[in-house]
Computed example of a mutant assay.
Amino acid sequence: MALNFDTALAVHAQALRVRSERTQLLASNLANASTPGYQSRDIDFSATMARAAESGASLLSTADWGASSSDALYRVPNHPSRDGNTVEVGVEQALFSQNVSDFQTSLTFLNMKLRGLQSAIKGE
């Protein structure tokens, strides 16, 4: 009987990849907070994961799966600045912090799944 890691790990591996890419975008937003004309971008996590589930895309079998540049959406600022920069530091920091927390939660679930598989393989 072969072990299919796609089904065993569920969506957590895919969620980690999307969360990682979102972390990069949010960090880029924070790094460019004082760059004139910089447009803040973010990934719609729910829509990206839903599209992956519909297409049946797998992180383990498809090397280029994940959030692409077309998934990155521009954010509309609550308080536009004069220089055209749409980064709001407080908002970006809150989103970054929440994304890191969600990443850690997915990582914890993935670790629990792997421990369960390890126990099953050992026959415990």
Results as ranks from 00 to 15, higher is better:
L73I: 12
L26T: 03
A10L: 11
A27H: 06
A50Y: 05
P77A: 04
M49S: 05
F109H: 10
D42V: 04
L26P: 02
Q14K: 11
S81V: 08
V11I: 15
P36W: 06
R75Q: 12
D44G: 05
L30Y: 04
L3C: 03
Q93T: 11
L95Y: 03
S46H: 14
S55T: 13
S34W: 08
D71C: 06
F5A: 09
G56N: 08
S68G: 15
Q118W: 03
D6E: 12
L117V: 10
L117Q: 01
R115L: 10
P77N: 04
F96A: 09
R82C: 10
L95H: 05
N4H: 07
R19I: 01
F5Q: 01
V18G: 00
S119Q: 01
I43H: 00
Q98K: 13
K122Y: 00
G66A: 06
R19H: 14
E54H: 09
G37V: 02
V91E: 14
R51W: 08
Q98R: 14
R82A: 15
P80G: 03
I43Y: 00
R75Y: 07
A67H: 01
A33F: 08
T86Y: 00
T86N: 03
T7S: 14
L3R: 10
T23A: 12
K122M: 06
D102L: 15
D64K: 14
M1Y: 11
N4F: 02
L73K: 10
G56Y: 06
A52R: 01
A57C: 07
T62C: 07
S81T: 13
V91T: 12
P80M: 03
S55V: 08
S46V: 10
S70K: 12
S81A: 12
V89D: 00
R19G: 10
L114C: 05
A47W: 10
L110K: 02
A8S: 12
R75V: 14
A120E: 14
E54K: 11
L110H: 05
V87H: 02
D42L: 01
N99Y: 04
S20D: 13
L117A: 05
G116V: 10
I121S: 01
E92G: 02
V76I: 14
T35V: 11
N29R: 02
T7G: 07
F5N: 01
S28K: 13
N99M: 08
H12A: 04
G66K: 00
G90N: 12
D71Q: 01
L3D: 00
L73C: 09
D102H: 15
G66R: 00
Y38I: 05
S20F: 10
L95E: 11
T86C: 04
A120H: 08
V89H: 06
S55Y: 03
T105V: 15
S61G: 14
L3F: 08
S55K: 09
M112P: 07
Q39I: 07
S40E: 06
N78L: 15
L25M: 10
A63T: 08
D42E: 13
L107S: 11
E54D: 14
A94H: 10
A67S: 08
M49K: 04
S55E: 14
M49R: 04
W65F: 12
K122F: 00
Q24H: 13
T86F: 01
A13F: 08
R115C: 03
S58Q: 03
H79E: 14
G37L: 07
L60T: 11
F103A: 07
R51V: 09
S20R: 10
Q93R: 15
Q93Y: 09
F109G: 04
A15E: 09
